[in-house]
């Protein structure tokens, strides 16, 4: 299963590092990354493969959301189908 991981918030040092650290630890393969600054907001979007994820999906979500709370960022990890179904005909 593939998921979309999004990070939105104020730009600070180490966002990418922290998120990718969790991914590596839990055997989540990062397949694609884009990041940009939109209206002063840091926006990072990752496409990740969670087929071999070491922990249940909900635990991965909790772990990443906790980083978000620590760094004052909003982090979401959602099944990629939600985006495909809403934005593709």
């Amino acid at each position: 299963m593939r998921a979309i991981l999004t990070v939105v918030g104020k730009d600070t040092v180490g966002i990418l590092a922290k998120v990718s650290q969790v991914c590596a630890k839990e055997h989540v393969n990062i397949m694609d990354v884009t990041q940009s600054i939109m209206q002063d907001l840091f926006v990072m979007i990752m496409l990740v493969d969670i087929s071999s994820c070491a922990v249940p999906f909900s635990s991965l979500q909790d772990e990443l959301e906790a980083i978000g709370t620590d760094m004052n960022l909003k982090i979401h990890v959602m099944h990629e189908d939600i985006f495909n179904s809403m934005h593709r005909i």
Partner: peptide, 18 residues
């Protein structure tokens, strides 16, 4: 980002969050 672009992804997140 595959076939769905950044704008669309953020739109979905905004719809849910805000």
């Amino acid at each position: 980002m595959g076939v769905v672009n950044t704008h669309d992804i953020l739109e979905t997140i905004r719809m849910i969050d805000d």
